[in-house]
């Protein structure tokens, strides 16, 4: 496959794929291999001298946290959470974004006006309010609703890209030809227009995954992200920041995990862009 070859040509893209790949592997099998339970609280361990979270050691390579839980186990389990946060929120954002963007670009006129207005509103809408509102209104605010919040934050960016692309494609000849042949709107959109959006969409979606992970960390910092005891990396960094100067590992390792993962997705997105964008070929 051409794209595959393109991607594997770039060192950075390969690095990105390796990072994302290892994240998936860790999320998949890590929890089965890890000897410690990420949820097992051990207050005796906290109380034991020297008091507090325990520094990295042979049994706990990343140390333990303020409830005596193994940090490595929590980071490994957290990779699942991170993957879910990134990907599922992206699916929601892409779902809404593609629908809105396609409708706006395809129909134009007042549909476009309303959707553009919605997009502007979404850009100007404070993310923190969205998070507080969603978490307060739903009866059982578990982690699924974090995905929804992130999706609602991210859709407008995707919609804008899709809309622009659809506007460009709509006037192309094959679309007009399909219309002349009597194809329905839905068919034209799905068959002829959307496939032409896949390249920028794939790039935007990959970048969106990276963005979601960062946004979740930010929301956690404000206390609006995942809820304890879920080992979300954002939550772990936030918990660890109070220990920054004395128990560095509580903040450092989850922070590194976030940075590496986001880096991985961004690199992958870059690689995809380079591979899919014909203008950048044969550099």
């Amino acid at each position: 496959m051409g794209i595959w070859k393109e991607i594997t040509c770039s060192k950075l893209a390969v690095a990105g794929m390796l990072l994302v790949g290892s994240l998936i592997v860790i999320a998949g099998i890590g929890p089965f291999i890890c000897p410690h339970d990420p949820f097992e609280i051990d207050l005796d361990r906290v109380i034991a001298e020297p008091y507090g979270p325990k520094a990295p050691s042979r049994t706990h390579p990343f140390g333990t946290d303020d409830l005596g839980r193994d940090l490595l186990a929590r980071i490994i389990y957290g990779s699942r959470v991170s993957l879910q946060i990134g990907v599922l929120a992206m699916v929601i954002a892409v779902g809404i974004g593609v629908t809105m963007g396609t409708l706006a670009g395809y129909f134009g006129g007042w549909v476009d006006m309303i959707i553009t207005w919605l997009m502007d509103t979404a850009f100007a809408f404070p993310a923190a309010l969205l998070a507080i509102a969603v978490m307060a209104i739903v009866p059982n605010p578990d982690i699924f609703w974090i995905f929804v919040v992130l999706g609602l934050i991210g859709w407008a960016g995707i919609a804008r890209i899709v809309r622009g692309r659809v506007l460009a494609v709509r006037s192309e000849e094959y679309a007009s030809a399909a219309r002349a042949l009597g194809a329905g709107h839905v068919r034209i959109m799905l068959r002829h227009i959307l496939p032409n959006c896949t390249a920028p969409l794939m790039v935007a979606a990959t970048m969106n995954v990276a963005g979601n992970i960062l946004t979740e960390a930010w929301l956690s910092f404000l206390g609006l992200g995942a809820q304890p005891p879920i080992p979300s990396w954002g939550l772990m960094v936030t918990e660890g920041q109070a220990y920054m100067s004395t128990h560095y590992w509580m903040c450092l390792y989850p922070g590194l995990a976030i940075a590496l993962t986001v880096l991985g997705w961004n690199l992958l997105g870059d690689g995809l862009r380079d591979a899919l964008d014909p203008r950048l070929k044969d550099v």
Partner: peptide, 30 residues
């Protein structure tokens, strides 16, 4: 382009956009 400098700058800029802002702030304070 494609020299070491390019590679370094691109990695640095990627790290810039991959780090949670508040975390960076704390590190800078430290």
């Amino acid at each position: 382009q494609n020299q070491f400098m390019d590679f370094l700058i691109m990695i640095l800029s990627l790290i810039g956009i991959s780090t949670p802002v508040f975390w960076l702030g704390l590190v800078l304070i430290l």
